[in-house]
């Protein structure tokens, strides 16, 4: 009898399990209080679209601006790799041909992976007899950035009526002229969610 109950419990549990599904854009809306991929895409779309539409990246000589990636601060209550946002913006901007991103340095000390480690390795081959010196890069070729891209993601939670809470996410980016230090463009995009107070985002 005990075995029968156990078997029935197992079958019931299996029947109640929600099967894992692939998320298909435009078909499913994720019901999540935290930041999900759709939120990042929406933010990237708004921010990149605004920057492109501003005309700031249009050089009269048709060339591309060299951009250094600065710090993107995660000021939310959840673990979120800001490089997910940065990489998508970088990809979009680079694809326009208006921007070249330097991998020689970064403004974010906490993101050493943004600097290409092979640059230093390549230069260490100078005067190494094992290397054909005519193939080794000459000094003074790294290109400094004329613009930088940095930003911040912040979160605010406010209790609302009916045992719910409103979660406000702000994605803010800015472009700074490296010669003058002046902020040439900035944009903040907002994503709001309403959820149960019991739902935690961290």
């Amino acid at each position: 009898m005990k075995r029968l109950i156990l078997l029935a419990s197992l079958l019931a549990a299996a029947g109640c399990t929600t099967p894992t599904q692939y998320i298909r854009e435009g078909v499913q809306t994720p019901n999540a209080a935290g930041i999900v991929d759709q939120d990042v895409r929406a933010a990237v779309s708004e921010l990149t679209g605004s920057l492109l539409q501003s005309g700031l990246l249009n050089r009269t000589d048709g060339g591309a601006y060299v951009v250094a990636i600065g710090r993107v601060v995660n000021d939310t209550m959840q673990h979120f790799d800001t490089d997910i946002l940065v990489d998508q913006i970088k990809e979009e901007l680079t694809a326009t041909g208006k921007v070249l991103v330097t991998a020689a340095y970064t403004g974010a000390s906490d993101k050493p992976a943004r600097v290409d480690s092979t640059l230093e390795a390549t230069r260490s081959a100078r005067n190494d007899p094992e290397f054909n010196q005519s193939t080794v890069v000459a000094p003074g070729q790294l290109v400094a950035a004329s613009l930088s891209l940095s930003g911040r993601i912040s979160q605010r939670e406010t209790p609302t009526d009916g045992g719910k809470k409103q979660i406000d996410y702000y994605f803010q980016m800015r472009v700074v002229d490296q010669a003058t230090g002046l902020e040439r463009w900035s944009k903040q995009t907002y994503i709001g969610k309403l959820t149960s107070r019991r739902n935690q985002t961290w």
Binding site: E25, G26, T29, Q38, R41, A42, V44, S45, T48, G49, Q88, E91, E92, A95
Partner: peptide
């Protein structure tokens, strides 16, 4: 192809 062409709710 672009993130700017993602589905939006």
């Amino acid at each position: 192809p672009s993130t700017l062409s993602s589905w939006r709710a």
